[in-house]
Amino acid sequence: MFKALYSRLKQGYRTMPFPPKNDVLSKRFAGLPCVVSEKCKEDCAKCKAVCPTDAISGNGKDISIDLGKCLFCTECQRACPTGTINFSREYRMAVRDRNDLLIRDTLNRYEKTLKKEIKNIFGRSLKLRQVSAGGCNACELDINVLNTLSFDLGRFGIQFVASPRHADGIVVTGPVTKNMFLALEKTYNAVPSPKLVIAVGACAISGGPYIDHTETYNGVSSILPVDLYIPGCPPHPLTILDGFLKIMKAM
């Protein structure tokens, strides 16, 4: 008993503020890519040659990266001879509209104030049910991490519930395998309307590394209407948390 109390003192208070006050991300963290299209050479396709998921399209001023497909492996940044593509350390990447995942040029779209969002969420709550549909368990683990005391998801009024009947929406990870199709559909149908669908990770948005495999569908949007896209492979817990807060503002 005393040992447990002493240990509580020793472990300290570990819940981080959100948005984080200090720079908690690794210096090598690859977040939102920035594209400087004027640097891009028309006749060069080196980035496309190395991109594992064909996330890059267009040339010159039309070049764009599809964050829904991007695995954030940064191979394109390494291959680009002109410095057109640079991965920033911006973790806020979740969007409501699939088209907003196409990154075309240097835009600070994500610099919009988040403080307002935080204010808006007080007094609200969001109950979610998670469905893993072919994911590699990395997205699942980094969603789970939000329940640890470091992130303390409960303080934002968000809770993962055990039954779809108790949920306001589902969080889907994985490309949706053929074998999970029925279970996903049943879970979605069991959630009372109106309901949300949140796609977390490259797999759930586009199929990710498994794009066009016969064993999978290309993400959840081919089956269900998606309300929020959280890109990454896997997305950082802060990216996921930011996305959840975004959708609460929208509700």
Binding site: S132, A133, G134, G135, G174, P175, T177, K178, N179, M180, A183, Y210, H213, T214, E215, T216
Partner: peptide, 11 residues
């Protein structure tokens, strides 16, 4: 099991 089968070995 098998719900997570996504065809890695085949690919």
């Amino acid at each position: 099991l098998g719900y997570q089968h996504r065809g890695i070995e085949r690919a």
